[in-house]
Amino acid sequence: MAGHSMTSTAAPVGPQQHIFGFTKAQFVALCVMFVALIVAPFFLYPVFLMKLLCFALFACAFNLLIGYVGLTSFGHAAYFGMGGYIAAHSAKVWGLTPEISILIGALLAGVQGAIFGWVAIRRQGIYFAMITLALAQMIYFFCLQAPFTGGEDGIQAVPRGNLFGVISLANDMTMYWFVAAVFVICFLLIHRIVHSPFGQVLKAIRENEPRTTSLGYRTDDYKLVAFILSATVAGVAGGTKSLVFGIATLTDVHWSMSGEVLLMTLVGGLGTVFGPMIGAAVIVAMQNYLAEMGAWVTVIQGFIFIACVLAFRRGIVGEIANLLRVRL
């Protein structure tokens, strides 16, 4: 990639001990995250927290691609939304349990990611972004017309069902623990992927693709696998969201959703472990508190985009990490 790399967040760090693959600072942040996850539902509205966690997971999935491989997908709503539709359909029409519904949604999002990724990685940089956006728009029109998605109405009144067929998720608190568990599992999975030898190759591709190729790695294969993983986790996030709210609609496949997840990741910090989560929290909270301002929310989001690009490219977590000279 020419010029500045998309991610310039890495602060200079010396040798340090790792705890479960996390640096010391990251491990402290992880502990804070766990405490926050446990304490938060006693202070904040659980449905709001679940929404936040779904978007945080979506942003983490997106960050896997933009932050660690340097691929800017402008069409991640397609996987998020499709995961939502399929999970909602499985739960409502086929009457499957929530965990199976979400898995089916994620699986289909992954298959879709495999096909789209295979097409999109033929081009780099700006073209990659345009191609993913165009493919996502194709999915949007498909969802608008396909009979099973319910068109403009979406799939409504999706039951949350019983976890493993036993535990009822109708209660918001129970549902919250389920969503939190899904989030933590996927978060740790992404962390594991990024810090595996496979993840090292992904980062090498981000820094210098021709050189990675010259070292004998088939970069296209690595990019495709990363794309599929990212799409699958985005599908998990979408499926979980549709079960939380009992509805899957066109909003989740619309291009503006792709823009939102990009904004969340950018605000939090591209290529940071905790950035996407913080970014999602900021954006979701902003949308919640400013909801009565209507279309002005879009305008504010536009301004945040510009501020991030012009002055604030490290994002919140990136700036903090830079100040503390640690990696977060």
């Binding site: 020419a2 500045h4 998309m6 800017t72 940089g125 823009g259």
Partner: peptide
Amino acid sequence: MDHLYGMLLTFG
């Protein structure tokens, strides 16, 4: 900078 920042700025 990277081309993609231009796309992000104009998107905003």
